[in-house]
Design a protein around this nucleic acid. Structure first.
Lengths: 167, 167
DNA sequence: GTTATTGCAAAATCTTTGCAGGGTG
DNA sequence: CACCCTGCAAAGATTTTGCAATAAC
């Protein structure tokens, strides 16, 4: 679309994570475009989960207009490169997150907020776990329930003054 | 749509699971229709996961034609009644399964097959696990990897005669 | 220069909705 | 016999695709 100064950084960066993506593209004879770098870069700065739409808004706000198709394309690439994961939690639209240390997802079924928690006991349990005739690659633990904020709100709503609860 | 003899069974059945659904409908002033019973019934006989499309095919084969809207409607109802769960595994369309004892899902990323395994150690671990300021209701553990069938095929493909691998 | 990539718009999926006719309670 | 439910078709939401213009190498 447009030539961006960023694109030089893309090939020459010393950041291991940038290198990983850059090398992945090289290995497959794919090109380093300003769009790919912008999307990749924006994602690195997100902590937690995001939807395609949210990502596009963030890029817009950065003044970087990228088409929906290119976003999907790059997201796909990052998933193939095992740098990004897609989650579809109950009753919600698809969300993405960078692949990092394994963690548990706490999903509030009232407000939809998702929180990540590290759980070394669980990680140890999973590392030791073997499945008959199944070669495990990675796992996802989703815990659905109510977050403290929603629990407080719903409790308040049940009490005398009867505050209205949203959602 | 049509009056089916099954519908009488619906209200009078002694099966606890039928009662549960029947009572759920009563409690909400909802009607017991032949369609709801047919869909509910068909689902009870499915072990494992199914898609909306597969369910409709099964009903068709049983000679019971139900519209897509009604299937979605009833599926929704069963989920609200906590008798059915929706799962969206990586890169696949939504699948449903009856809610039963907690189990781990093994998902083959090559062929897409999903297998359930009981894991009492894990269940015990989860039962004891408490999350700060989060009230857990239920959890899902998805393990992605390669099933033995696909592992065998891919191994064979890598060897001399070079069988072509599908997917 | 060659050819992968982008953006657009159109198509494809999957799911939801509005409404008229029909069945349940 | 009121009104909930069904089926249909149309609308929505999200994702994919075909193609001409453009940029990477």
């Amino acid at each position: 679309m447009r030539t961006d100064p960023n694109i030089e950084e893309f090939a020459s960066s010393n950041s291991p994570i940038v290198r990983k993506f850059s090398d992945y593209l090289d290995a497959r004879g794919m090109r380093k475009t300003a769009e790919r770098y912008a999307i990749f870069n924006r994602i690195q700065s997100i902590n937690g989960h995001f939807t395609i739409e949210e990502l596009q808004h963030m890029l817009d706000e950065d003044g970087f207009r990228v088409s929906r198709s290119t976003i999907y394309n790059t997201i796909e690439l990052l998933m193939e490169a095992k740098m990004l994961r897609r989650h579809v939690f109950e009753g919600m639209q698809a969300q993405y997150e960078r692949i990092s240390l394994p963690h548990t997802h706490l999903i509030c079924t009232t407000c939809g907020k998702v929180k990540e928690v590290r759980d070394t006991n669980f990680a140890a349990f999973m590392n030791a776990r073997r499945f008959n005739a199944f070669n495990a690659d990675h796992y996802c633990l989703y815990v659905y329930g109510t977050c403290s904020t929603c629990a407080r709100k719903s409790k308040r709503a049940r009490e005398p003054q009867g505050n209205k609860r949203r959602q």
